[in-house]
Structure formats: C-alpha cells, structure tokens
C-alpha cells in the first residue's frame, strides 16, 4: 500500500459535514478549497474574519474590488444578503459560539485534540491571526491536513510545536481518513479507498483506535 498525497479528498470529505444554514469559517489554503466541493443543494454561509459573512467566489479577472478581500488579503466577493462589520463584531461572532464549524490547517495535531499551526520557533513565525479565537469559539473544530508531510505523519501523540489551541480539535480529516478525537485517542471513523485501517494505524505515531462502525469510503 503506497501513500499518494491528495488534498482534494480532504476538501471533499469535509464539505460533506455541512448542512444548509451552517455558518462556517474556512482557513486560508487547503481549508479554502472545501467550498468547491459542497454537495448539491447544501447552502452554507461563509464567515471571513476580516469582517463579513456571505463570502462569495473569487471575482473574474478585471472585476476585482480591493475593498472586498478574504482573510488572506485576496479579492473575493460578497453574496446577496451578506453583511460587513468591524473586527470586534467579527470576533464576537467567533468567540461567542455563533460559528458552526471552523476548518484549519495543521502543522501538528495530537490525540488530546491539541493543534499547532502558527509557529515553528526560530524558523517560521507567521503568527496566529484569528486561529486561536476560532478554535476556542467555533462549535466544531475540524483540522484539515495531508496525512504525511515529507514522510512525517501530521497526527502525533503529543504536539512538539507551540500550541494554537489546547484540546479544542473535534475532527481530523486527512487524505487517508476521517478521525474523531475522543478521550485522548484518534478514533478512525472512515478510511478512504486506497488505504486500510492497518496501514493507517501502522503509519500513525499516535494512539488510533477503530470505531465500531468504521467504514471504507470511496471519495
């Protein structure tokens, strides 16, 4: 069994969590791609932490409005019915528990639900931006990551990098499968076609158990 990185599997699977009416914040990068895979008929509202709800698609070239940008500073659009607000209101929405989901990228995620994604001391220090507020505030926190990066598994027993959030991660979706975090363990709920639970457990340096109703998904 060989590992082939495939980010689209992660985005596709995460998109299936949502139901119509959910308010969702997608992080920059891989999490942003989730919006491209919403199942037919599911209508969610995207929150952009720089100050609006109703985030729409990237505008056509030449139609950019540089007063409407996403949290990465890139031009986007606002959908009919959307609303702009200041940063305090935006983070009131986040911390106040008004988001159903947040989807965030990962440097490391551990079996206690700890997430590290904002700095590698001495090397890469981009800063936490809104990630610390999003992880404590959203009702469900989804960590989205390739299962392996340069041969290293992103799911670990204990994060070695500075934490973005302590014990806040609910779901982890990789390109190998979907895990919940329960009682200090990763619980494999689904494994994606091309992998099996044995492969995942053998290659993940954390405690992984198989859910009783764990199943294979062709994604």
């Amino acid at each position: 069994m060989e590992y082939t990185p495939d980010k689209s599997k992660i985005a596709k699977r995460i998109a299936r969590f949502f139901k119509s009416g959910d308010i969702v914040n997608l992080g920059i990068g891989l999490p942003t791609e989730v919006a491209n895979y919403l199942p037919e008929g599911v209508v969610i509202t995207l929150h952009s932490e720089n100050g609006f709800v109703g985030l729409g698609p990237v505008p056509k070239e030449g139609e950019e409005d540089y007063d409407i940008v996403n949290a990465g500073g890139m031009p986007v659009t606002i959908l009919p019915g959307g609303a702009f607000f200041d940063s305090c209101t935006s983070f009131g929405i986040i911390r106040g528990g008004h988001l159903d989901y947040t989807v965030l990228g990962v440097l490391e995620v551990d079996q206690e639900g700890n997430l590290a994604n904002y700095k590698v001391p001495g090397k890469l220090i981009p800063g936490m931006g809104g990630a610390m507020d999003l992880t404590v505030g959203a009702k469900k926190v989804i960590a989205a990551t390739l299962h392996f990066d340069k041969g290293n598994c992103k799911l670990v027993k204990k994060c070695s990098l500075p934490l973005t959030a302590k014990g806040e991660v609910d779901y982890v979706v990789t390109d190998c499968g979907f895990f919940t975090v329960e009682n200090g363990k990763f619980v494999l709920q689904e494994y994606f076609k091309g992998y099996d639970p044995d492969f995942i457990i053998k290659n993940t340096p954390a405690d992984v158990i198989i859910a009783p109703n764990c199943k294979e998904i062709d994604i």
Partner: peptide, 22 residues
C-alpha cells in the same frame, strides 16, 4: 518582518486577532 524579528532588529509581539481587537 520575520527577518527583522529573527535578527533581533525589531521586537514583535503576536496577539490573537480577536484579543487584539478587543
């Protein structure tokens, strides 16, 4: 910014965005 911080030329204090606003 990162270069100046790592070189000790500029002090950088990172604050979570919602905390900064508040």
């Amino acid at each position: 910014t990162g270069r100046q911080m790592n070189a000790g030329e500029t002090e950088v204090q990172l604050v979570p965005q919602g905390t900064l606003a508040e």
